[in-house]
């Protein structure tokens, strides 16, 4: 092992989010980020925490896994998680508490931070050192480096900014952690999840998005046809989500999901600040728009001023005919 000469190494806790028995991609990114500050412990809580621990123990950068078994943790309710995180912090003296930037992480981490009077640091894009972090403000128009004076740093880490931790080859020590009593201030009623067998928007390598230029919801079928051979995810702008063309969870932007795929194809999207904030870290950006003045062309690597109803089907044909890549 490489000896680090820093005066004091941190001790990090990563709060794990499991999705259908798998570690969420955002959690894997958080583990990578956490390994920069010191040895990493993962905390997993649910009725099936022991099963999850088997999956987690193999993740390479993890030193240990804490399991808290309890029904009350099953739906990620922050009222139940925050006391558990706090108990773990008090028992083991962690200096950093991390989670991925997801609806779960954003909900839980600040509440846990409040218990210690610490100021949470949301959506970190870079860990400079134990105390210094980089994040974006003003819809990604300013990059801010901040230093925290808190004794414990509570952060959510932007999944697209960190590599995923390796899921094999590790041998973390698994330990039980006593469950906290159920808080009972809130209860889970139901999940209304969109069933989708398509790639996850936040982690897809290719994203094809539609904006107002799509005209209606049915036309999104056209984007799906193009997405299928590319194994791409389909995204959307706030305007089309608001218009009810597609469900909310497809929204890319400041208030939706942040994506950073290898390739982002924007169809009929003008490129408003709020949308661009959610995708400007994409490696290659291509834009199809009839309006040559659309702001999106100013940041696109490739652009075509043409009707998307011509371009998208033609691309689909060519990809199907040409045998991709």
């Amino acid at each position: 092992m490489l000896r680090v000469t820093a005066p004091s190494l941190g001790k990090a806790l990563v709060v794990v989010e499991m999705i259908n028995g798998k570690v969420s991609p955002a959690t894997l990114s958080a583990i990578t980020a956490a390994s920069k500050v010191g040895p990493v412990t993962a905390l997993v809580a649910s009725a099936a925490a022991k099963d999850a621990a088997q999956v987690l123990a193999k993740i390479k950068p993890l030193a240990s896994v804490l399991t808290a078994v309890g029904e009350q943790y099953n739906h990620g309710l922050p009222e139940e998680y925050a006391p558990l995180i706090d108990a773990a912090v008090r028992a083991n003296g962690y200096t950093h508490v991390f989670a991925g930037t997801s609806a779960f992480g954003k909900n839980v981490i600040p509440r846990a931070a409040a218990k210690q009077g610490c100021m949470p640091i949301p959506e970190v894009t870079e860990v400079k050192d134990e105390h210094t972090f980089v994040r974006e403000t003003y819809a990604g128009n300013a990059i801010t480096t901040i230093k925290s004076s808190d004794k414990i740093k509570y952060c959510t880490l932007r999944g697209t900014a960190f590599e995923h931790a390796e899921e094999e080859g590790g041998s973390a020590v698994v330990e039980d952690f006593p469950a906290t009593p159920a808080a009972g201030k809130s209860s889970f009623v139901e999940d209304q999840l969109s069933s989708s067998d398509k790639p996850d928007l936040a982690t897809a390598t290719t994203v094809i998005s539609g904006g107002r230029g799509m005209k209606n919801g049915e036309n999104f079928k056209m984007l799906e046809d193009l997405a299928a051979p590319l194994s791409a995810a389909v995204g959307a702008t706030r305007a089309v989500v608001d218009a009810g063309y597609v469900p909310n969870e497809m929204q890319v932007g400041q208030t939706g999901k942040t994506v950073a795929p290898n390739f982002y194809l924007a169809c009929g999207i003008s490129g408003a600040i709020q949308h661009v904030a959610g995708m400007k870290s994409s490696k290659v950006i291509a834009v199809v728009n009839t309006d040559a003045e659309a702001p999106f062309f100013q940041i696109a690597d490739y652009g075509i001023v043409e009707d998307l109803f011509k371009v998208v089907p033609a691309l689909t044909e060519k990809i199907k005919a040409g045998g991709r890549r």
Binding site: C118, M119, I121, T132, E136, G140, N141, A142, I143, T144, T145, I146, K147, S148, S149, D150, K280, I285, A292, F297, Q298, I299, A300, D301, Y302, G303, I304, V305, E306, K310, V311, A314, L315, K318
Partner: peptide
């Protein structure tokens, strides 16, 4: 404040690439 701002910078500016004429 618990967080002190050390630097604020503009994001790396992406440059416009090429516009093509045909599909």
């Amino acid at each position: 404040p618990h967080l002190t701002t050390q630097t604020v910078t503009e994001p790396t500016i992406r440059k416009a690439g090429v516009k093509v004429k045909t599909v």
